[in-house]
Design a protein around this nucleic acid. Structure first.
Lengths: 345, 345
DNA sequence: CTGAAAGCGCTTACAG
DNA sequence: CTGAAAGCGCTTACAG
């Protein structure tokens, strides 16, 4: 593998000039730059990231800290962030923040060893619920950080307005004429950001109140954020003769798909007998013709990466820890429609 | 951030001794080691990966090259590999090998820039179909590499026996008494390893022939490896009055789920009217009570990482480029049963 | 616009 | 068992 020394010899300049020319510094003459580039190409030279990092103090590598690997949302965010970073010439190193209670040693090691190695210039933290000590440790690293999802103290955060999203989904249903709308929310502790379920419930209730409906606690169920969770909760709701909802709003698309399948298994047609709306923009939504509030996870990853790159570029110690709002939009498909004609009570 | 120099001062030894003590070299006295460890802990010292790499030539970082981010299988493999690497003290840097035809520049840049930076000691390549030139470039990097999935020339590869897997799934059906078994295989070009569809089809046919059934080309359909793909193919198969299969074998669990949903939409019960078996061990399989041949993707990622770590440990130039077989097992759930009593033809 | 030289923070023969 | 010193391959003030 070629070194900068070899390139310098071939181009007939010093290693300092090679470094400047390939880094695109403006203080190199066009002719010299050309010779250096030719020599580098001829030798297949690419600067060693290791040596470059040690000398410059910049790694051109970003750490991505995620609580889950293997689920659709996180994989999508990862994809969006990776592409934006790669386009800027950055590498992405992945850190899995495991569950504290189940894997205390692995999690501890992440903070005491992996993140301390100075392998990255900055971090993107997705849906992180951190202890005070963990947050201190991260701050002590002195690296820029952008959070996606849960609001973190003294960290620039991008997050979706969970209340507004839930209100939009519910209003979509009320505007179609629905009044008996059940809500399947997250069970406590399932999601890492424990404010999210409360915000979404608030949005749901706000939308009901806006059309004069008093929220009925019996119409709210907690479930896991999975197809199975939505399925069970829906069987529960539809099986209770007192409830008779005409629509279900689920806090995730997977739950909503579970609701659709549960309705079908009871012989109900969606949307003729029951409307269903979810949140996410999940890849399976298209197949199930699910109406949803799309939160664009790939785009979320991209925006987090761009925000971080901006901080790195201006090297701001970043006082402006804004909590920026992420985009979302209602994607109407065929799982929602006007409610069935009301039966006599 | 503490440097090795500070630790050396605090412990009253040279930096060389600090380095040896913390690296666990046996040539350090117990007393000295203890003092060094105490000093390091007190200062919160962790060696800089950058400096360590430059000095030692080892990065303790592995590159994971994947053609897709965001799908369940790849996310699962990533998860398994990440954990095994982290447990060995290694970091994981992710490289997305984008589709050649759609993103020629991004893919080219991966080979000409990202992989050349010497940021990693070795690579794990998942389902990679590489051009001759790309393979040459990877070999020229002189780094150990383990392939998962597609067989790569001169590379240690872990792969599943696709023929045997398909034969097992099909034999499960024939042993239940099925003889009219349709097969939904991958459409050409969808998967990167283009031998896989042929091998699975071979296994399907072998199992039929073993019970005296002549494979009928009309019972084979190609589809995308998705729920949608399986759904469409199944409507096609069940809609053809000449075929009347009692069972469907799909080359992936997502296809198989599509088959189950298609059957239900036609009023058929699974498994009473139609048995369905898939391949994968997909997380959704449990919900749909799908019988499948589980290929344990998380475990695949772990095994690939362990194989790579073994190569790194013995620093073998690795002549033994064995193609090791990955484990799989039949997971019988409720989507398969004896065939319905045959109607008169 | 370019070069000589220091230095980034470690590891590791070499010597004792 | 330990230390002094070289060196890993770059980047970047500093000087001209």
């Amino acid at each position: 593998m070629a070194t900068i020394q070899r390139v310098a010899e071939l181009a007939g300049v010093s290693t300092a000039t090679v470094s400047r020319a390939l880094a695109g510094k403006s203080t190199v003459s066009a002719a010299t730059r050309q010779r250096v580039e030719d020599a580098a190409r001829q030798l297949g030279y690419v600067a060693s990231a290791t040596a470059s990092s040690l000398a410059s103090g910049r790694t051109r590598n970003v750490g991505m800290v995620m609580p889950f690997l293997g689920s659709w949302y996180y994989a999508s965010v990862l994809k969006g962030a990776h592409r934006a970073l790669a386009d800027a010439g950055y590498d992405l190193t992945l850190y899995h923040l495991e569950d504290t209670t189940r894997h205390p040693r692995r999690r501890q090691r992440l903070f005491e060893e992996f993140l301390m190695r100075k392998r990255v210039d900055a971090f993107i933290a997705v849906s992180l619920e951190l202890t005070a000590e963990e947050l201190t440790r991260i701050h002590d690293l002195g690296k820029p950080m952008v959070g996606l999802g849960g609001p973190l103290e003294d960290v620039t955060t991008l997050s979706i307005d969970d209340r507004a999203v839930a209100e939009l989904a519910t209003s979509h249903l009320t505007s179609l004429g629905h009044r008996r709308i059940a809500y399947i929310g997250g069970s406590e502790g399932f999601d890492l950001d424990f404010h999210m379920p409360a915000h979404r419930r608030q949005g749901y209730e706000d939308a009901l109140i806006a059309v004069g409906v008093t929220p009925d606690p019996a119409m709210r169920l907690a479930a896991d954020f999975t197809i199975q969770g939505g399925h069970q909760a829906t069987l529960q709701i539809l099986g209770d003769p007192r409830l008779r909802p005409t629509a279900i709003f689920a806090a995730s698309d997977e739950m909503a798909i579970g609701a659709v399948l549960a309705a079908r298994s009871l012989g109900l047609r969606v949307p003729e007998d029951l409307s269903v709306v979810g949140i996410d923009g999940h890849e399976l939504g298209a197949f199930f013709e699910l109406t949803t509030v799309d939160q664009h996870p790939v785009e979320q990853g991209r925006l987090a990466a761009l925000a971080l790159l901006a901080e790195l570029r201006q090297d701001t110690a970043a006082e402006g820890h804004a909590n920026r709002a992420l985009p979302y939009n209602l994607h109407v498909r065929k799982s929602t429609a006007v409610p069935p004609v009301r039966r006599r009570d």
